[in-house]
Design a protein around this nucleic acid. Structure first.
Lengths: 330, 330
DNA sequence: ATTTTAAGAACAAACGTTTGTAATACCAGT
DNA sequence: ACTGGTATTACAAACGTTTGTTCTTAAAAT
């Protein structure tokens, strides 16, 4: 399985194992000549430390865990991509797990993280998360947890999230700028903090700027539900002139409905979303959206993780600003 | 970090470590009464074996590696999802890596797999893969490799792939059935076996069934290139009446072009793809596609992996049939 | 009463590292 | 030549398991 070990190197060189070990890590106790000899042989024999032995000894693994609700989502993909990039550079590997929005699986996966002794985890919590016992357990074992996107308040860990209020506000302002007055706003799971923030921000913006706007809110929890809700709304006599979609899945559902009814965007119905930017471009015209970059969020989260790993003081919450990307749908 | 160890249990129970260890794994040498005592305490103290110690000792990890070109692709996502499901059930974890179609990263990741002593890996090779030295190295260390989708011939490992010829043939037949005569067929990287097979199958089907069909073939390697190629083709005086897209990325590029030119599908231009089924449904009308299920492929691949892990005789190649899913684009 | 057998449990080595401490060697200071 | 110091290197324990071997005990066979 493994090619060579410290012991083998030591035997060949006629030195002790500890000398070889220290030489390889440039320990000051070891003389220059020894170091070069050791290193040369190590390269020649393609020596690679046995991870498991190292981890058994040092009790830390250089593996970071990422827990996402699902992997088939461009936002999470790009988050993962960003973390992976950084991880590679800093000598970490990444263990990816999906919760599938199922509390059982989420907990099982957190335990897997524990068993694999990850050095830290990034988590976007499942919609069902209530008991945070598992996360607290990780913290008590000094494993830092960085929540991202769908965050949860737990002292001792950082929340990295999109500027949720800000994003919703931008969307509302864009809608106002187009003089739309009947808005259907579709959000995700209503008890997530990310949803609450966005809802309240959207509401507030309309109320303060254009109190006459008719705002209807719903919380479809899947593509199908989103389609159903949109179908109903769009076939009413007093149908909305704009639909706001909090995420890609909702947007997709809405567009299924729009296509099915043969409506023209934006003439018959205007659409605006919050998205990472991939899905909205597939439509014609492209959907106008408030950008929320999973990639940037990943980079940000990694910085926080590093701070936590180095036991530096950590921030409670970090947010990432959003911008409006104009398509032709509004 | 860890709550309890064998040693602790042994001390509390006044037994030796080996007895405790054996009791927990139902070794026949241990008496019933001892076993129950041990197991009860183990549950009480939430004993969990230290993975790293186990792996150091037994030299195997119960971790499976999956290497995909990229994670932000619905096909690979569903493949990963399927493998994960099976892995969970069978007590494995999954380590996911992306090659980003970069040979350097691919090799680095394979080495990470090695360092982490995965029990086996699933790999969809990077387009650049030429030197298979790294894979051979894994095999020589008795780590089974199952190639999937973008496979490569290497003796000693199984290839699990879509019925590539069959899929292309189905697409060709669908095009023929609609009496289309000027086909632009867009494929991916030309030197991949998956591409070669599909090209040749498509060609053959047309040649034998409708020799009069004008078939143009190109190999765009990205969304942008695909869009560019489509734009050029669609603005020619003698433009194609049908575009065949080998994958989602190509389809997306083509549709960008179609949208940009304001063409109507399927009246102005017919489109057919090969896809996992997500992207095609986003368009209006939905794109007709030949289904290639990443999910099913994942399940199939896992079965092969299990066989390899149990050192059963392995198959050289396993293929998965495809079906045509009618949208309104042809 | 003595030996054989088997069951049950303990001992101990090993996996490949890391790291605190002890040992060795060499040189300068007296 | 002897002590003290310093630069190297070796020794050894520990991390938590697994597993081959040995030990103990008691019942069965002679």
């Amino acid at each position: 399985m493994q090619q060579s070990t410290l012991k083998e190197l030591a035997e060949i060189l006629g030195m002790s194992i500890s000398t070889v070990s220290r030489a390889l890590k440039d320990h000051p106790d070891i003389s220059k000549t020894t170091k070069t000899k050791v290193k040369e042989l190590a390269v020649m024999m393609e020596y690679e430390p046995n991870n498991y032995a190292v981890q058994l000894r040092t009790r830390q693994s250089n593996v970071l865990g990422i827990l996402v609700p699902t992997i088939d989502n461009y936002f999470y993909d790009s988050f993962i991509g960003a973390v992976e990039e950084e991880a590679r550079v800093h000598g970490y590997s990444v263990l990816i797990m999906q919760s599938k929005d199922d509390l059982i699986i989420e907990n099982a996966n957190i335990n897997l993280f524990r068993k694999n002794m990850v050095s830290g985890i990034f988590a976007s919590v499942s919609v069902q998360t209530e008991g945070l016992a598992n996360y607290e357990r990780m913290l008590s074992q000094k494993i830092p947890v960085v929540f991202f996107d769908r965050v949860v308040e737990l002292k001792g860990c950082t929340r990295v999230c999109l500027a949720d209020e800000h994003a919703a506000q931008i969307a509302a302002e864009a809608i106002i700028a187009k003089k739309k007055k009947k808005v259907l706003a579709l959000f995700g799971h209503p008890h997530l903090s990310i949803t609450k923030k966005r809802v309240s921000s959207l509401k507030t913006t309309f109320e303060t700027r254009t109190p006459e706007t008719a705002l209807t809110i719903d919380y479809p929890e899947s593509v199908e539900e989103s389609k159903r809700v949109a179908l109903i709304a769009l076939t009413e006599r007093n149908r909305p002139d704009t639909i706001f979609c909090m995420g890609d899945m909702i947007l997709i559902g809405v567009m299924y409905a729009v296509h099915q009814l043969g409506l023209k965007v934006p003439d018959d119905i205007a659409v605006i979303g919050i998205s990472n930017g991939f899905i909205p471009t597939l439509y014609n015209p492209k959907i106008t959206y408030v950008e929320t970059s999973g990639y940037k969020l990943g980079k940000l989260a990694f910085v926080q993780m590093q701070a936590a790993l180095k036991l530096e003081e950590i921030k409670d919450e970090v947010t990432l600003d959003s911008i409006l990307v104009e398509g032709g749908s509004l």
